[in-house]
Design a protein around this nucleic acid. Structure first.
Lengths: 340, 340
DNA sequence: ATCAGCTCCGTTAACGATTACGAAAACTTC
DNA sequence: GAAGTTTTCGTAATCGTTAACGGAGCTGAT
C-alpha cells in the first residue's frame, strides 16, 4: 500500500497508459496540457520517485557512480580529500562509494574489484603504501575505467593524478629551518615504497646539499605508520645520539606531534633548543603547543580537482590530466621564525 | 569487440538458452556438469561481468548496498564512525555509499531520496541539526527501508539507534571538576536544536544542582559551530567576567582547544588556575598541552554496531534495536586530578 | 507396456522504465 | 462533407537478468 509508486500506479489511477505518464513526467511533446497536469499532480501526491536502476538499464547509460578508495578516512588529510570529492560529486549528481584499504594492498585490490563489478564509472584512488600497478591497477586499465590517482602515484604508470608538491614543500620547509639558524637538521621520513616518503626525503636532502651541508645517516630515521607513537620513538633515538640534532623535519604532522611530546616531556624547549616542522597542516598542527610550522596540503582542493579530472576524462578519452598543487608553508611557533 | 559480454552472448555461442547460462553461473541445481563447465569456461574467456543494474532491478533490491549520511566527514568523530561502519560492511560484503549533509536538512533529504532511488538496502543516518522526522525520515519509513540513527535521534520517532550517553558523560565530567576542587564551573554549550547540545548541558546542570550549586547564567555560553575559534571567543567572554570561572566544561574538544589556547596566551595556568574538560576524545585531546581530560565517544564502536543493527533488522523485522554506549572519562592533565 | 520419478533444459513472464511506430480523435481546409 | 493535417495517446519491443512452470527424455519398478 505504502510501497513505492511506479509509473503503472499513476497510469492505472488515471486510466491512461504508462507511456503517457512517462511522457508527462519527462516533458515530452506528444501530450495534452490537461493530462500532463493530472499526471504531475498525482505524481506529486504519491511522491513518485523514478527508479534509477530501471532508467539506467533502459538507457544503457550507467549509473552516475564513482568509487573512492582511501588508506584511512579518520586521517584528517584523507577526510578533507573525501569531502572535496563528495561536494563535487553531489553537484554533478554522482553518488560516491567509499572504502578504506587500511594501507593493505590486498584489501585495496578486493575493493577495486568489487567496485568494478558494481559498475562504477570511475575510480578515485589514494593508493596504499604497498599497492603496485601490475596487480592493483592493471585490471581496471584493461577495462578502460577512468582512474584518478591522488596523493601518491605509481613509478611505473602514468595516469591522471592530483597531488601536492611534496618535493618542493619539503625543500622549503628545510630551507626555512636553515634560514632560522638551525645547524643539525634531522628528518623522520616515511618508507621508500611510499612516494610521499621518498619525495619529502628528496626535498630534505636537496635542501641540505644546496646549502652546502652534509646528509648524516644517523639524522635520518624511517617510520612506517607515520603516527605520533613512531614520532616519539624516533625522537628518542635522535635526541640520544652523541651529537643530537637541533631541528627535526617530519614526514607528517602526527609524527611531529610525537616529537613535540618528547621535547615537552624532556624539557627541550621549542623553538629555542629544537626546531620542528611537520607536513600536512592537519587540524592538530594549529592546536599543538607550540603551534606547529607545517606544509599545507589542500585536501579539499585535491579532492575536487580529482573528481573534475574524472569528469573531463569521460569526454576527452585521450587526454591525460595531471596537476601538482604548489606547496605552501604555514609558519607557526615551532620553527623559530619568531626568534629573529 | 570489447563490448561487455552478456548472458545472451554466451547462450548463442553455446547454442543454449539464457536461462541455462544463468543457472550455470549462479550455481543452480537443474544443470548438467558438462554444460555448466562449458558456460563457466566461456564466461571466463569473455570476461563476463554480470550487469548489476539488471540484477538489482529484477531482484527489486540492490545487491548489498547501504547508504551512510553524515553531517561532516572531516569531523574526527564522524570519520571514526564511518570507519566503524565500513569495516563491518566490508566484512559482510556490503558496499557503502557515503554523502555529507553539511548540516543542511534539505540536502539531507535530497541525499536520502537519491539513495532510495538507487535501491539501497538500508540507511545509516547521523541526522543534521535541523533534520525533522516528518520531512526527512517519513518517506523512507513508508518504503520500509531499515534506518539506523546514529549520534542523535528524533524526539517524535522511535527507531533503531546507536548513540553515546551524552547526559551521563557530561554529568561525570562536571562531577570530576567538582571533586577536584573547582568552585566556579562554566560551560560552553552547543545549540538547543542539537541533541548533544542540550543533553550535555543537562548533565552539566544536574551535576551542579546535585552538588548543591547554583547554575549561573553568565557561566553558560552558547556556540553554534563548536570549533576552536568559538571556544577562544567564549573563553574571552568568560574570563573577562567580574567574577571569572575557575573551570570550563566544553561541548566538544575543539572548543576546549580554543579555551586552552586562550589560557596559554593569557598565562592562566592549567590545571592550577583553570580546569578544562572537553567531550569526544578526539585525536587532538591527547596532543594538546596540557593533555585534555575528556569524555570518550567510541566512534568506531558506534559505527560497527549501527551496521550490525541494520543487518539484524533485515532478519528480524519486528524488533527495534537500540543501544546507548556508556560514557567513559579519559583523564589527562587539564582537570587537576594530578594535583591532589 | 505403462507409469512414476528423475535430470536437464527451454518458454515465458516478470522487474520499471523509455521509445519507435501506428492508430484514433480532433481540427483544418476547400 | 471528404480529404488532409495535427494532436494525443496506446501497443509492443527493449535494456540484462531471474524465476515459476512445464516438457522432453531417460531410468526403473510394476
Amino acid at each position: 500500500m505504502d510501497q513505492k509508486a511506479r509509473l503503472i500506479d499513476i497510469a492505472r489511477a488515471l486510466n491512461i497508459s504508462v507511456t503517457t505518464v512517462s511522457r508527462a513526467l519527462n516533458n515530452k511533446l506528444d501530450i495534452s496540457k490537461q493530462t500532463k497536469q493530472a499526471v504531475l499532480d498525482l505524481a506529486k501526491e504519491l511522491n513518485y520517485q523514478p527508479n534509477t536502476l530501471a532508467i539506467s538499464l533502459r538507457k544503457k547509460r550507467t549509473l552516475k557512480l564513482i568509487g573512492v578508495v582511501l588508506p584511512n578516512v579518520d586521517h584528517y588529510f584523507f577526510s578533507t580529500l573525501l569531502q572535496g570529492i563528495m561536494s563535487e560529486a553531489h553537484q554533478n549528481n554522482y553518488l560516491v562509494l567509499v572504502a578504506e584499504s587500511s594501507q593493505d594492498a590486498t584489501k585495496e585490490r578486493e575493493i577495486l574489484e568489487e567496485f568494478v563489478s558494481y559498475g562504477v564509472n570511475g575510480v578515485l584512488l589514494a593508493p596504499s603504501r604497498e599497492s603496485n600497478y601490475e596487480e592493483n591497477l592493471l585490471p581496471l586499465v584493461k577495462q578502460r575505467i577512468p582512474i584518478v590517482l591522488m596523493d601518491r602515484t605509481y613509478a611505473d604508470y602514468s595516469s591522471h593524478f592530483v597531488q601536492s608538491d611534496d618535493y618542493n614543500g619539503a625543500l622549503e620547509a628545510v630551507n626555512l629551518l636553515i634560514k632560522n639558524g638551525y645547524k643539525r637538521i634531522a628528518h623522520i621520513r616515511g618508507s621508500d615504497h611510499w612516494s610521499i616518503g621518498s619525495e619529502r626525503y628528496r626535498g630534505y636532502a636537496d635542501a641540505l646539499t644546496q646549502n652546502g651541508r652534509e646528509i648524516l645517516k644517523e639524522y635520518v630515521v624511517s617510520c612506517t605508520l607515520a603516527n605520533k607513537e613512531e614520532g616519539f620513538q624516533a625522537a628518542t633515538t635522535l635526541f640520544n645520539l652523541p651529537n643530537p640534532p637541533d631541528a627535526v623535519f617530519t614526514v607528517t604532522d602526527n609524527v611531529a606531534a610525537g616529537v613535540i611530546e618528547y621535547c615537552n616531556q624532556f624539557n627541550l624547549f621549542i623553538p629555542e633548543q629544537v626546531g620542528v616542522v611537520g607536513f600536512s597542516n592537519a587540524e592538530i598542527s594549529a592546536l599543538l603547543s607550540p603551534g606547529l610550522t607545517t606544509v599545507e596540503q589542500k585536501g579539499q582542493d585535491i579532492g575536487k580537482l580529482a573528481f573534475s579530472f574524472f569528469l573531463q576524462s569521460l569526454s576527452d578519452k585521450s587526454k591525460v590530466f595531471q596537476k601538482t598543487f604548489e606547496s605552501k608553508l604555514i609558519v607557526r611557533e615551532s620553527c623559530g621564525s619568531q626568534l629573529s
